[in-house]
Every structure is written in structure tokens, then in C-alpha cells.
């Protein structure tokens, strides 16, 4: 059984160059390469990740996204992932968001974050509220699928994710990804915003 799964993994690995080319040519969209393909971390990898500050809790598997995502791209695969606690890891430096459920990564996407003058805060935030059809009163702009993080308005919400774009401090994610994330996340779930790997603790 394991051998068969690995064989599938091998097959995907072997056609990786073709995937690269296809990924480079296709329009910004869902990344299919990751479907049914995840990388299970061994003990050494997990220890290394925790020691280096990349992760702060046990993670069992990561989505295999061997191609660089472009702005507006996302990957989502929660097939076979059991129910569990959800948490989000957002790395401003690599401009990525990762959604974990029960220790397995189920989604990842490119984000846009706060401009230099309006930086996104880092740290751990619980999701304070979920607002599906939110409209910002401050900016008079629609912000669908808002997950509010702080009391002063920082949130994760759907946005046009473009190269060279930035926000006023929020985390902007692609709309279809935001829809999935909105369904997967709950009020109280933890969101960790980091900027690069933290120092080893």
C-alpha cells in the first residue's frame, strides 16, 4: 500500500519538469500539481523545522508544491485529511500563507501584505470574527471573506493579489482561496504571522 503510494509520488516527481513548463504557461489559478501529493515529514525534518523556528508545533505533512507560485496562485488539497484544529501560518518574507488542519497542510497561497509605511503586525492572533460580505467603512471597499485578527482592523480577506501590490496592513489572499479558507477556519483559530524564520528558541 505504502509502496503504491510512493510509486504515485515517484511518477509525479518524475514528470516535474513538464509540470514546471505547464505551470509557467498557464494563467494564474489553482495549482493542480499538488493534488493527491503531499510530503510527510520525518522526525529529523520536524526537529529541524522547530529548531530553526520555521514551525512552532508538530506538523505531519506539507503540500508538495514544487513550482514557485505566482501572484494569485493557490493550492488546496484537504482530501483525506481528518478533522482537527486549524491554524494558519503566514510568512510575510516569503509572501505565503499555509493552512493546517490536524497537523496536515491543506492549503497554501501567495499573499499581499502591508506596505512599508503600513506594516502588517507579526505575532499570534486568534480569529476574532468571520465576516462573509464585509465592506470596510474605513476604506469604503468590499472585503469579502474577512477573518478579523485585531481590534484595530487587521484582517485576512480576499483581495486582488498582484505583483507590486500591498495593503494597509491586512493580509490579502485570492478570492477562491479565501472562500475555502473561510469555510475551513473558525473563530478562535490561531494565526501566526512571521516575517522569515524566527530565531531558534
Amino acid at each position: 500500500m505504502l509502496a503504491a503510494a510512493c510509486a504515485v509520488a515517484v511518477a509525479i516527481t518524475m514528470i516535474r519538469p513538464e509540470n514546471n513548463v505547464a505551470a509557467a504557461r498557464r494563467p494564474a489559478a489553482f495549482v493542480e500539481a499538488s493534488s493527491g501529493h503531499r510530503l510527510f515529514l520525518n522526525r529529523a525534518q520536524l526537529n529541524q523545522a522547530i529548531a530553526s523556528g520555521t514551525l512552532d508545533r508538530p506538523v505531519k505533512s506539507m503540500l508538495a508544491v514544487p513550482v514557485p507560485l505566482r501572484f494569485g496562485d493557490y493550492a488546496w488539497d484537504d482530501s483525506g485529511v481528518p478533522a482537527g484544529s486549524t491554524w494558519l501560518r503566514i510568512d510575510l518574507r516569503s509572501q505565503l500563507i499555509s493552512v493546517f488542519r490536524g497537523g496536515h497542510e491543506i492549503g497554501t497561497a501567495v499573499i499581499v501584505y502591508g506596505a512599508d509605511g503600513l506594516p502588517t503586525p507579526t505575532g499570534r492572533f486568534p480569529i476574532l470574527a468571520k465576516l462573509k460580505d464585509h465592506r470596510s467603512s474605513t476604506y469604503d471597499a468590499p472585503m469579502p471573506y474577512t477573518l478579523r485578527l485585531t481590534g484595530d482592523g487587521v484582517a485576512i480577506h480576499a483581495s486582488s493579489v498582484l505583483w507590486g501590490a500591498a495593503t494597509h496592513g491586512c493580509i490579502g489572499i485570492p478570492l477562491p482561496f479565501a472562500e475555502r479558507l473561510f469555510a475551513a477556519a473558525h473563530v478562535g483559530d490561531e494565526v501566526e504571522i512571521v516575517s522569515g524564520a524566527k530565531a531558534a528558541r
Binding site: 508544491v65 514544487p66 513550482v67 514557485p68 507560485l69 510568512d91 505565503l96
Partner: peptide
């Protein structure tokens, strides 16, 4: 793994 999928800094 994260660096592989990242669009860069």
C-alpha cells in the same frame, strides 16, 4: 519546501 513555492521576497 516553502522557499520552493515562494514567489520570493
Amino acid at each position: 519546501m516553502l522557499a520552493e513555492r515562494s514567489p520570493g521576497t
